[in-house]
């Protein structure tokens, strides 16, 4: 009886892990290709980054809480100090020349990879509305 209970508890936990919608999953798949093309050289295969040089993407409090800054950084480039998981990084990520749909896809990919989970889908129109941060 106890075993059965544990089994159902496990099953219900799995069920709570909401699966991505087909649209989000398709965007994640496209985003993986963008990631491997443009991001992997610095942020590495598991989004682990490089200590003191390139911040990690998983886990990353910055990615979780500052989505708008992440999108703006991908679109316009990112310079100067940012704090990720308590560590200060002072680097220079040049804009990669990605199109709005590619930026949306890669953000959806990194927000749903390596243990990250955020099922709220970013759209190309969200990226289009992102303006250049004031210096």
């Amino acid at each position: 009886m106890k075993k059965l209970f544990v089994f159902f508890l496990g099953l219900s936990l799995v069920a709570c892990q909401e699966q991505p919608s087909p649209e989000l999953q398709a965007s994640i798949n496209r985003g993986q290709e963008v990631y491997q093309n443009f991001c992997i050289q610095c942020h590495l295969a598991e989004g682990q980054g490089v200590p003191n040089a390139f911040p990690p993407l998983a886990p990353s409090d910055f990615l979780e809480t500052q989505t708008a800054a992440v999108i703006a950084g991908l679109k316009y480039g990112m310079q100067g100090e940012i704090v990720v998981n308590g560590q200060t990084y002072n680097g220079n990520m040049p804009a990669q020349g990605l199109e709005d749909d590619e930026i949306a896809d890669v953000v959806n990919y990194i927000r749903n990879s390596w243990g990250n989970q955020n099922r709220q889908m970013i759209l190309a129109s969200d990226v289009a509305q992102t303006s250049k941060p004031k210096p």
Binding site: N37, F38, A95, Q96, G97, L98
Partner: peptide, 13 residues
């Protein structure tokens, strides 16, 4: 310097 050809800034390019 002006009149530089148009550049396609993309990834490592």
């Amino acid at each position: 310097i002006s009149n530089v050809p148009e550049v396609y800034v993309r990834g490592q390019g």
